[in-house]
Design a protein around this nucleic acid. Structure first.
Length: 465
RNA sequence: UCCCUUGUAGCUCAGUCGGCAGAGCAACGGACUGUUAAUCCGUGUGUCGGUGGUUCGAGCCCACCCGGGGGAGCCA
């Protein structure tokens, strides 16, 4: 009879006591203890914690292999799970066999049995998921992704796959990555200009900066849809909150107005937080203790309180009356700076805030013009520590207004003919928003730098791995 | 892209006035004989980010370039 292979997660549960099982994973530490035997801590990624394995000196390969078993080596270990005699864990395994699958040379393996800086670990992005922090981040990120699908699917939304390669520049402003198969060393030239008709698609094409416009086409057919995929921005931004490649979730709903949009955003955020707190307690415990004390309490508070909703005009008013010294002066009509948003969400409200009804001049052409003629039905969800986590709006469904706004923004209406068709044929009020997955991971884990919440970060000047 | 800051051993960092490159940890060798980040003794380790310049002599001074961090803008 073969021994059952169970995960470290299973092996750490009290129910496993008494069973003889097999675990497979990687050595985190080895402590040779004073009794002619060793403690081996094994982790297989299934959970935050390790399984402590006791390898006795009587094992055949004890002297030859186990006493020199190095951090990072892969092992298959068989033994009996017992209640732990020591502190710090419920169970431990008494090994009857320790098989070494692959050695990680102690002199060459970069990860040491100590803390490394996140900056250094970025250089070893292929190995950093083997650390406590990055394992925990990966599991939380997974849960946020899963709960996204869970939330929308349970709410009658359809998952729509919008294209990665596109010819449309969603907001008329975003800097895009060009996609081309033209030979860069000898570009086909016509009249002194590159002849894009000879490119793969017969015209210029780019990586998407947003699936929103395409998403609207399906929302105005299927009712409620969401997209969840990678997006690309060729902006030269070097901050702890920006990536060149990041994942975005964009729901789009027919017959939704701005307040429906806000309600959905709030329910969605709360669902994700609830799921992470429920399913990742060990990982969250780690973030609480080692990354950002207070995160769990802050998240719990988000669940308990309704989000504050505040118009742009009210926000400007509060900022002006605050008496706070800002580097950038506040006045109605100017875009809110990071310091302003931080004041509102971190000091004034101390929790998530939904700001809405922004001046039309500082927002995109597709956002619905309000009756005042000055503002558009836009909304941003701001969150302490991270800032803008969601940006959304009710979309302009009136053909004439939309066309006018487009022209005013310097866009060619004929280029967006298919987008305008949605207003020509059975137009409806509709709304949607975009949530940056990485910012959500930052918010839930307390991780300071966005480069540490995505497996292989892409940023200006950095595309390793 | 702008401002500030930083790059020295596998890792964290020191390096004075321009004059032979140095600590801790890790690793390695040994001792200790139920440990939970790092018990004791001993032994190594270098393209000083890159290129050019000044100088008898540059880790140190100058110029340019490339990374990292913090802040700003852009946004999610």
């Amino acid at each position: 009879m073969t021994t059952a292979w169970i995960s470290i997660k299973e092996s750490r549960k009290a129910e496993s006591i008494g069973q003889t099982v097999q675990v497979r994973g990687w050595v985190r530490t080895r402590r040779d203890s004073k009794g002619g035997f060793s403690f081996i801590e094994v982790n297989d990624g299934s959970c935050f914690g390790n399984l402590q394995v006791i390898a006795d000196g009587s094992l055949a390969n004890y002297a030859s292999e186990i006493t020199s078993l190095s951090v990072g080596s892969s092992v298959i270990i068989t033994g009996e799970i017992k209640a732990s005699a020591g502190q710090g864990q419920a169970t431990e395994m008494f090994a009857s066999e320790v098989r070494i699958t692959g050695v990680a040379s102690a002199t060459d393996y970069p990860l040491q049995k100590k803390q490394h800086s996140f900056e250094k670990l970025r250089e070893w992005a292929h190995l950093r998921p083997r650390t406590n922090t990055f394992g925990a981040v990966a599991r939380v990120r997974n849960r946020l992704s899963f709960s996204t699908h869970e939330f929308f699917q349970n709410d009658g939304f359809f998952y729509v796959h919008t294209p990665i390669i596109t010819d449309s520049d969603c907001e008329g402003a975003g800097q895009m990555f060009r996609v081309t198969t033209l030979p860069l060393d000898k570009l086909p030239m016509t009249d002194g200009k590159v002849d894009m008709s000879q490119d793969f698609f017969g015209k210029s094409s780019y990586l998407t900066v947003s699936g929103q416009l395409e998403g609207e086409t399906y929302a105005t057919a299927l009712g409620k849809i969401y997209t969840f995929g990678p997006t690309f921005r060729a902006e030269n931004s070097n901050t702890s909150r920006h990536l060149s490649e990041f994942w975005m979730i964009e729901p789009e709903m027919a017959f939704f107005e701005l307040t429906d949009n806000m309600t959905l955003a709030e329910r969605y955020l709360k669902h994700m937080i609830q799921e992470v707190l429920t399913h990742c307690p060990e990982d969250m415990d780690f973030f609480e203790k080692r990354i950002q004390p207070g995160v769990t309490a802050a998240l719990q508070l988000v669940l308990d309180k309704p989000f504050t909703r505040m118009s742009y005009t009210e926000a400007v008013d509060i900022l002006i009356k605050s008496g706070e010294k800002f580097e950038y002066p506040v006045a109605w009509g100017v875009d809110l700076q990071a310091e302003h948003e931080r004041f509102i969400t971190e000091k004034h409200i101390q929790g998530p805030v939904i700001l809405y009804n922004y001046p039309k001049e500082i927002k995109s052409f597709y956002m619905r013009l309000n009756d005042d003629g000055k503002t558009v039905a836009a909304m941003d969800v701001l969150v302490p520590g991270v800032g803008e986590i969601i940006g959304g709006s009710q979309r302009e469904e009136r053909l004439d207004v939309l066309t006018e706004r487009m022209v005013a923004s310097g866009l060619k209406a004929e280029y967006y003919w298919w987008y305008l068709d949605l207003r020509r044929f059975g137009t409806v009020p509709h709304a949607g928003f975009g949530l940056g997955l990485e910012r959500m991971v930052q918010y839930t884990t307390g991780m300071a730098n966005i480069r540490d919440v995505i497996p292989f970060p892409r940023s200006p000047g950095n595309c390793d791995f």
